[in-house]
Structure formats: C-alpha cells, structure tokens
Amino acid sequence: MKKKVALFIVLAILLTQMPIIGQYFSIINTLIHETGHALIAIITGGEVQSVSLFSNTEGATLTSYRYWIGGFLTSIAGYVFSSLLAYLFMVLIFKRKSGYVLSILLGILIVSLIFWVRNPFGLFWVITITSGFLWVLLKGSKPALDNMALFLTSLLLVESVTSSLEIMYLGFVSPNNAGDATNLADVTFIIPALIWGTFFFVQSLFFARLGLKRYF
C-alpha cells in the first residue's frame, strides 16, 4: 500500500503540472475549497448566493453574513477544509473505506450542481466530472473504485498543499491580491496577509503529514 500511495501522489503531482487536463482535474480542490466557504457561511447563519469555478483553477464563493465572526470563519474555511478533507480521505482509504470517500465527493458534486454553481464553465465542469464519476461508480470494479478514490484523494492532498504555498507566496509579494489571505487581513485589521498565507501553508503541511504518516 505504501508504494501504491507514493505512486499515486507522484502521478498527481505530474498531472497537475500538465496544461488543460491538469487544470481540469485540479479543480476538484477548487470545488472542495469553495464548498468549505459555503458550508461555514451557512453554519454561521449566512447565505450562499453562488459558487463560480474557472478553467484556470480559481474559484469564488459569493456569500453574505450577519456577524463579524461569520465573515471571519467563512474566509478562513476554504484552505482548512481542503486540507482537513484530504486528511480524512487518507484515513478512510487506510481503513479500506474508499466508498465513503466516493460518497462524500459525489454528495458535494450534486449539492454544488443543484444549489450553488451557476457560471458556464463551472456548470460544464461539474456536469462532466459528475457524469464520469457516476459511470465509474456504476461500471467499475471494486479495485477500480478504490483506485479512483486514491487518485482523487492524492489530487486533493497535492493541491491543498500547493495552493496554500501559492497563497503564502502572494501574501509576501502581493498582499493586496492574495485571495483569502487578503480577505482575512481586511477582516482582522491588524494581522497582515503574509501571516494568514503562512498559516494556510503550515496547516496544509500539518494535515498532509497526519494523513501520510499512516502509510510511511
């Protein structure tokens, strides 16, 4: 199992560096990231107007919230949710419960399609990835399903770390254009974007290590 996990992570790293197809599959992390924002907005009493997914792997969640704490938690949720879910999926696969991984991902896809995603590319991506997902679920053998769960988990794990690294870098070189780190700097007033970017990267490494240490 150790060699198989290492192989899938290497494949995920190589795939995400490829043009077009790499970006297409990397959007799985974008969807999870934006789902984190949406869920926390709802939990804290806010509303989700829409979720947008873009071909360059960027995303945006338009939310409203009543209280300061809701805005703070919603802003912080994206990267943390991706890292936490990657860790959870690694644990489930280690316990040979890949079905739970696939069920959670399918649930997120369906909920996003019905309630949140509205931009044209986002709809195209969710519909095509869900169609492929359902085809494998219906036609695939148990080993094929296990491999798909590990493949998608590896993608999420890799992207949760690399996207956090990118936002940390932006926090240092372009703090006014560092996405969630910039939003948090605006919300907290005294904590700059570079600190939030560093926090996102450190927590991604923490959860990645927790997930991988079961295998290595």
Rank of each mutant, 00 (worst) to 15 (best):
A149R: 03
E166C: 08
G45P: 01
V173L: 12
Y169D: 04
I69R: 02
G71I: 09
A86L: 04
F216N: 10
Y100V: 13
I42E: 04
S83E: 03
L106D: 14
I104H: 06
I76L: 14
L205S: 02
W135L: 08
I167S: 01
A86V: 02
L102S: 06
I32F: 12
F201V: 06
E159R: 09
I32C: 05
N119S: 05
S50R: 14
L113G: 08
S103W: 14
L152T: 01
F151H: 10
V48R: 11
T57F: 05
L85S: 00
S131F: 04
T74G: 05
F189A: 15
W68D: 15
A208E: 01
I21P: 03
V5M: 15
W68A: 14
V187L: 12
W116L: 10
L14M: 11
F189I: 12
L184R: 06
V187A: 04
K139Q: 14
I93W: 00
W125V: 01
L84K: 10
L170R: 04
W125K: 00
L205P: 03
L205W: 07
L106G: 14
P19C: 04
S55N: 12
R66Y: 11
V48T: 00
R209F: 15
A208V: 10
G179W: 02
E58Y: 15
P175W: 01
I40L: 06
G78D: 00
S154G: 07
L184P: 03
M168Q: 07
M90K: 10
F121R: 05
I69M: 15
L15S: 06
I167Y: 00
A181Y: 01
I43T: 06
I108N: 00
I32R: 10
L84V: 07
G99R: 06
G107P: 08
S141H: 10
T188M: 07
E34P: 01
A193V: 01
I20D: 09
S64Q: 13
T44Q: 09
A193N: 07
S82L: 09
N177D: 12
G197L: 03
I110L: 11
P143Q: 05
F200P: 00
I195G: 05
I43R: 06
V80E: 00
T63K: 09
